[in-house]
Amino acid sequence: MSGPDRNARRAWAYLSAVAEPPCAPVIALTEDVGAVEAADRIRTRRLTDGDVDVLEATRARYAVDRSAADLEACERRGGRLITREDAEWPAWSLLALDQASTAARGGAPLALWVRGEHDLAEATQRSIGIVGSRAASSYGDHVAGRLGADLASAGWTVVSGGAYGIDGAAHRGALAAAGVTIAFLACGIDRDYPAGHARLLAEIGRRGLIVTEYPPGTTAAKHRFLTRNRLVAAMSSAVVVVEAGRRSGAANTAAWARRLGRPLGAVPGPVTSATSVGCHQMIADGQAHLVTDAASTAALAEPDGHDPQPPSSPRPTDDLSPSQFAVIEALPARGTLRVDEIAFGASLPADRVRAALAILELRGLVVCSGGTWALAR
C-alpha cells in the first residue's frame, strides 16, 4: 500500500474509533473535507464554531490514535476495513439509514470492518435476515435452521447477528447448504462473541462474511447490540423473526425493518410458548406477514409479488354443480345407497338425483351396481 493510501486508510480507521458509532457529526465532517483532513482536524482540535457537535462527540477519544494497531489486528484475522470510498461499500442497502426519519436514531456507518472473501455489496444484493430469541426452543432452532438452509440453497444470503439461539441456527443452516451467510457483530472483528460461537464464527469468516462497525478490541455491550440491529435490517431485502419475546432484541430488529421499509415476516409458534409471543403479536397487529417456509419468506423480498405457494392440483370435484356436489357428499365412504336414500341425504328431488348420478357416472366418480350407488374407488 502506497504512502497516500496508507495515510487515508489510517485516517478512516482513526475516525472509526474516535466516537461511538454511528456518529453523524463525524460522518458529515468526513464527507465535507475528506477522511485525512477530518482526522487531522479532530486530532488537533482544529475545528470551527460550526463543529461543536464534532468536538463534543470526540472529546473522550480524540487523543488516542490506535489506527495502525487496529488495521494490523484486522489484517491478522484476515479482515479489511471498508469505507464509503471503496467499490464494495453497500451504498444502496445503507441508503435508507441516512434518510431523515432514521438518521437521528442511527444513520449509516462511517466504515465497516469485514472478515471474509465475498464482496459485501454483492453478498447483500439478495439477502434475507433471520433473527429471533437467544433462548430458542427446539422448534425455533429447527425452523430457523431449515429456513437458513432452504434460502441459501435458493441463492439467498442469510443475514443474522451471530448470537445463540435463532441466529446461530440460521447461520448453521446456510453453511450446511453451502450457502453464503453474514454475521453482524456488536464488538470488534477480533472478538469472538459469544465465546461459545468461536468455531461457528470462524467458519462464517471462512465461507461467508463477518461485519462490524466497531474497531478491533471493542467489547460487546447492550447498547451496541441495539445499534447493530439496524445494520441487520438495513442489509437485508426482508427480515423474518422466527421466535421473539414481547420485548427483545429481535423485536428491536423488526422495528428497524419496519422503519426502513423492509418487508417483515414472522413465524407462528405454539400458543403456549413465551418465545413466540412477540411473533404472534406482530402478526396480529398487522406488522408482520405470516411465513412458514422458505418460499413464503422469499416472496417477501421478491419484487414481482408472486404467490409463494404453487397452485394446488385440481380436484375431480372442483367444478361440480351444487346438485352434483350434494349427491357426492350424500354417498358414504363405504357401502351403497338407493336413489331415494341419496335424495333424502342430499335433500334433493329424486329426478335431480338421477340426473346428477348420470353425470357423475360419466365422469367416473360413482358406480351403479344392482340398483344401488357407491363412490368410485
Rank of each mutant, 00 (worst) to 15 (best):
R315M: 14
R334N: 13
S93G: 07
L185R: 04
A333G: 11
G155V: 11
G155R: 10
W89S: 00
A330P: 15
L97S: 07
W113Q: 06
G3D: 03
P316R: 02
G116C: 05
W256C: 06
S160N: 09
G335F: 09
H171C: 01
A38E: 08
P308W: 05
A299W: 15
T272Y: 07
A17M: 03
S276D: 08
P90H: 08
A330R: 11
L226K: 10
A346D: 03
P263H: 02
W373G: 00
V18P: 11
D86L: 05
V54M: 02
T218I: 03
G245S: 06
T48E: 11
A294N: 04
T336N: 10
M1Q: 05
L231T: 08
S138N: 12
G148W: 02
V339W: 02
L362S: 06
P4D: 04
A295H: 04
E341K: 10
L29Y: 04
T317C: 07
R126P: 12
W92S: 13
H142W: 03
I189R: 01
A355I: 05
V26A: 03
S93M: 10
W92L: 08
A169G: 12
G217R: 00
A152L: 09
R61L: 09
A356L: 10
A57W: 05
A100R: 15
R9Y: 01
L337S: 04
L71W: 02
L375N: 00
V271A: 11
A73Q: 03
D304A: 13
A60G: 01
D49T: 05
S321K: 09
G269V: 01
L337C: 01
A35P: 15
A299N: 13
G364L: 02
V211E: 10
G106H: 08
A91T: 14
A250T: 06
G188N: 03
E213I: 09
G107Q: 07
E75L: 12
I189L: 15
A195Y: 03
I130V: 15
E31Q: 15
G106T: 04
M1N: 07
V271I: 15
G205V: 01
Y14H: 10
Q99D: 12
C23A: 15
A233D: 04
S321P: 09
V211F: 15
V271D: 05
V114L: 10
R352V: 15
T44S: 13
M235E: 09
A24C: 04
L29I: 02
R80Y: 08
A174I: 09
S67T: 02
V158S: 04
R45A: 09
G132P: 03
D119Q: 07
V291D: 01
L175V: 01
R77P: 02
V327K: 06
G179S: 10
I189N: 03
G371A: 02
G168W: 04
E341F: 11
